[in-house]
Design a protein around this nucleic acid. Structure first.
Lengths: 125, 125
DNA sequence: GTAACGGCTGGAGCGCGCTCCAGGTCAAGC
DNA sequence: GCTTGACCTGGAGCGCGCTCCAGCCGTTAC
């Protein structure tokens, strides 16, 4: 699969794919006879996984570290697992924050409802 | 309270506080005799609230919209409530994404554990 | 009185994560 | 064979959200 196809299938632009390769987020990929990047299905799954890590807020440097370890081979498995475990912890913390903020939204919304129905004045909304 | 005190108490830098005022995230504040910004406790609570909105991913433009409505007065309460309700919905969606990603981390971590203990080879980690 | 500090303004600079461009090569369709 | 278009590289540019700076003024401590 050529870079345009991968871009279409992954939703990542061609320029961004080349940029990701440059910074080490994607492995150096094989080239065809004409020097063009030739991707496989594995590359697509990898990008999709990396996008998930990104979407859940894993910092760029951790994603790059993880990618580098993956490129180095199977003997880095333990280090990769550690990165994922740290990320898992941060996700749990973020979920707790999110829950607290959802509660806050609920309380604020309730205050606004009270304010609208009773015509009460409240400071600092 | 002067801007340096507010910066220390809110954890937001002096420069950033002035920047926030410039873009409308903080209301135009009263000045003392010497032309310096004089903040009250209400300003601090407002900043803390805005930081929470930021921390949970409310886009800058929504925060600014909300701040503008707040500055306009109590008759904008309904519009402000709507912004909070939209944000609440997005937080619920984000929590669902987060849960899915935590599951994914758990599965990947389990795969790594299997890989380490059984010395099995797995593609695309 | 004076030095030092904190605040003021307007505007430039910066780091991140792309995004775009010039100028070229290569290959597939007609 | 020629056109068209996708791909190549290296490097410049950009928008966001600050962050820093010059040059100035007022207040506070000694």
């Amino acid at each position: 699969m050529k870079i345009g196809t991968l871009a279409a299938r992954s939703g990542v632009s061609v320029d961004t794919l080349r940029y990701y390769e440059k910074i080490g987020l994607l492995p150096k990929v094989d080239r065809d006879a004409g020097g063009r990047r030739a991707y496989g299905e594995t590359d697509l799954s990898w990008i999709e996984f990396v996008l998930k890590l990104k979407a859940t807020g894993m910092p760029m440097r951790d994603r790059i570290d993880y990618a580098r370890l993956r490129a180095e081979g199977p003997h880095t498995a333990a280090a990769r697992r550690e990165i994922l475990e740290r990320h898992r912890e941060s996700l749990l913390a973020r979920r707790a924050d999110l829950d607290a903020c959802i509660d806050l939204m609920d309380r604020k919304i309730t205050m606004y409802e009270a304010l609208e129905s009773e015509n009460v004045e409240l400071a600092c909304m």
